[in-house]
């Protein structure tokens, strides 16, 4: 099998606080193949964004990667010194942030922000950088790009700004784009446009995408595979269709049932009792056990590791352990 583009192994991210160390990410492992779109879902506090930040080396101190490794094409990038990490970030991994208002510098024109990024990472002159920037803006669907490139961010609407941010993430031709809630700040009609642009342009350039979102609908329409996080741990990972149609982890199943859809016929939504534990009170054993309807003794004591279920699917649940087959 070909080497994965990105390989995350047993990633642990910790935040020391006055009342002890919080584990925001606890032994999360996954791979991302070249050109693939991996969705990363979970509720707030599940660790989606922290996972993205850890890969790109943007964990705010005192938070730190306390274990595991991140490899980009086999090369470790989680322990690079800051100046070398800067050459990876932007150049090899691009990032699209949630809020297009705060991820652009309001004092610089779009042209300056784009050409500066292009010239930092690629060996081209100012004229060529500008030509590329205009082509890219045109590609992400900004009308009259050659004229609008000299505008400031506040001249653009929210949707247009997010297109600029996508152009910015892609301008150094990265191999991987991490998109952290790229459409959460936008209206649905604009959301559809942005998702289409992001997907098309990454496919065109062969960039893989890690799409972080809480919206399962967006994942369903965009991603090839999806990883479900719960309380900083990987609950389930697999091809989108399988995970959505036949969720195996009880948490994923509950999550799917709790989303109202445009086609459902039942009157009541499935509800998962309780809420996600805080990081300082994660139960022993499986983190989901107090809310799980299929819980049994072992879940309260031992933490399940992801179990292979075939066709690229992994589920971290004791229900699927061979030794527990009698419980089925």
């Amino acid at each position: 099998m070909a080497e994965p583009l990105l390989s995350v192994r047993d990633l642990v991210v910790e935040f020391p606080t006055r009342r002890g160390t919080l584990r925001a990410i606890d032994r999360v492992s996954f791979d991302l193949k070249e050109g693939e779109v991996l969705g990363m879902v979970g509720e707030s506090g599940a660790g989606k964004s922290i996972t993205g930040a850890a890969i790109i080396g943007l964990i705010e101190p005192p938070g730190r990667i306390a274990g595991g490794e991140v490899r980009l094409r086999g090369e470790r990038i989680d322990n690079l010194p800051p100046d070398r990490m800067r050459r990876v970030r932007g150049r090899r991994i691009g990032k699209v942030f949630q809020d297009p208002l705060t991820s652009l510098n309001p004092l610089y024109t779009v042209a300056r922000q784009l050409t500066e990024t292009i010239r930092t990472h690629l060996d081209v002159n100012e004229k060529e950088a500008r030509r590329r920037a205009i082509a890219l803006l045109d590609r992400v669907g900004i009308p009259a790009a050659a004229r609008r490139i000299d505008d400031y961010p506040h001249h653009f609407s929210g949707g247009m700004r997010q297109r600029v941010v996508i152009a910015l993430a892609l301008c150094a031709e990265p191999e991987l784009v991490i998109a952290d809630e790229p459409t959460t700040a936008l209206d649905v009609s604009v959301q559809a446009q942005i998702i289409d642009v992001l997907k098309e342009i990454c496919a065109e350039r062969g960039a893989a995408v890690m799409l972080i979102t809480h919206d399962m609908g967006v994942i369903a329409e965009t991603a090839d595979r999806v990883a479900v996080l719960y309380a900083g741990r990987l609950a389930e990972i697999g091809p989108v269709r399988d995970v959505i149609k036949e969720a195996e982890h009880p948490y994923t199943a509950g999550l799917m049932g709790s989303i109202p859809t445009l086609t459902q016929t039942s009157d009541r939504l499935v509800q998962i009792p309780g809420s996600m534990p805080r990081l300082n009170a994660i139960p022993t054993g499986c983190a989901f056990n107090p809310r799980c309807t299929k819980v049994f003794d072992r879940c309260r004591v031992e933490r399940p590791d992801p179990i292979d279920r075939g066709s690229g699917r992994q589920v971290a649940c004791w229900l699927y352990d061979r030794a527990e087959a009698r419980h089925d």
Binding site: S157, G159, M160, D187, V188, S189, V190, Q191, A192, Q193, I195, D196, D215, M216, G217, V218, A220, E221, T222, V240, R241, I244, K245, M256, I259, T261, L262, T263
Partner: peptide
């Protein structure tokens, strides 16, 4: 109709939605 077309589809029906035009 446009608004309904724009909602991401969880049912994975694979429908091709009409491109939404413009912004408010």
């Amino acid at each position: 109709r446009m608004l309904l077309d724009a909602v991401p589809d969880l049912a994975l029906s694979g429908r091709r939605r009409a491109q939404v035009q413009g912004e408010i």
